[in-house]
């Protein structure tokens, strides 16, 4: 056994902005050395989470989001837009550098964390494989996507597992570029994804999935993962990031803040109430 990790199960499913603020705050705490290596499990009830380099207006179908009450939030890591509902499970691993990942490489981190998730799926009876750069697939269909970041003192990877997600809503609200679908060899989003429940052919509870994943991480990283709590430092950082970043429309719109379509986007999101309108616009 090469050490102990903290397990956090803190979530605000109805407030994806708070969930993402917590995601960054926990990662920062680990990077700063004020919290130990941490595995977090959490869920959003109904949201699209776009990548740090994406624009909400390009990645989501706003009217479909309105129809289905889907909120839009931007995360602090790159990668593509994903749909979250309460039957998705998100995980996040924060390492302080130097990490157990060779060379603190982000690509090797996807692979190692991917191995842990694949091992967890195996315990449930689902045979999955890590597919570079950052996907986990079952029979050629995506079941989990990961994203991550690397800074001076932090190596961070998080991912979203489709446990029993509503794939119809997923395919309606995401506006996936045709170039991406063509590269994946499919014409529609629905055709390239699957869920744990579909693969198992039975219902599976979140606790069962979390337990399998925890054991997968313990096995692959040779650690013991023990339940823990948020620290006071993290609670303060969550509030600060929520106020200054994740609840602002400027952050959530993405880099398109100076786009000619910005006014239209603002109106759409204000009208639909999808994104909090706070802070400097």
């Amino acid at each position: 056994m090469s050490g102990e990790w903290r397990l956090l199960e803190v979530e605000w499913p109805e407030d994806p902005y708070l969930n993402l603020a917590a995601e960054e705050a926990i990662a920062r705490a680990v990077g700063e050395g004020v919290a130990p290596t941490t595995l977090r499990f959490w869920r959003n009830a109904n949201a699209v989470v776009i990548g740090a380099f994406q624009c909400a207006s390009l990645e989501v179908r706003s009217r479909e989001c309105l129809r289905h009450g889907v909120k839009v939030v931007r995360r602090f890591t790159g990668g593509g837009a994903v749909y979250h509902d309460i039957r998705n499970l998100n995980f996040a691993v924060s390492f302080r550098k130097p990490s157990p990942i060779p060379g603190d490489s982000i690509m090797k981190a996807y692979e190692a964390v991917g191995r842990a998730v694949v091992s967890g799926f195996g315990k449930l009876g689902v045979e999955a494989e890590f597919v570079p750069i950052n996907d986990i697939q079952v029979r050629g269909r995506k079941i989990c996507g990961m994203a991550g970041t690397l800074s001076r003192s932090l190596l961070f990877v998080h991912g979203c597992i489709l446990v029993g997600s509503n794939l119809e809503i997923l395919s309606r609200v995401l506006n996936v570029p045709k170039e991406k679908l063509e590269a994946k060899g499919v014409g529609k989003v629905r055709a390239r994804v699957t869920t744990l429940i579909d693969e198992l052919g039975r219902e599976v509870g979140m606790d069962e999935v979390k337990d399998a994943l925890k054991r997968g991480f313990e096995e692959v990283f040779d650690v013991e993962i023990v339940p823990g709590e948020l620290t006071e430092w993290e609670r303060k950082m969550i509030n600060e990031l929520y106020e200054k970043k994740y609840s602002t429309i400027e952050w959530n719109l993405g880099p398109c803040v100076k786009c000619p379509d910005r006014e239209r986007d603002l109106k759409i999101f204000e009208k639909f109430g999808l994104i909090s309108v706070k802070g400097e616009l």
């Binding site: 740090a52 380099f53 994406q54 390009l58 790159g78 570079p132 170039e179 100076k258």
Partner: peptide, 30 residues
Amino acid sequence: HGKTVRVCATIANGRIEHLTITGDFFGEPV
């Protein structure tokens, strides 16, 4: 390399008036 970059631009009078770089790639700083 596996990811997508999308560039949107406005050209006026032969010059770049506006440009946005978006995509599902990874990098720092954002």
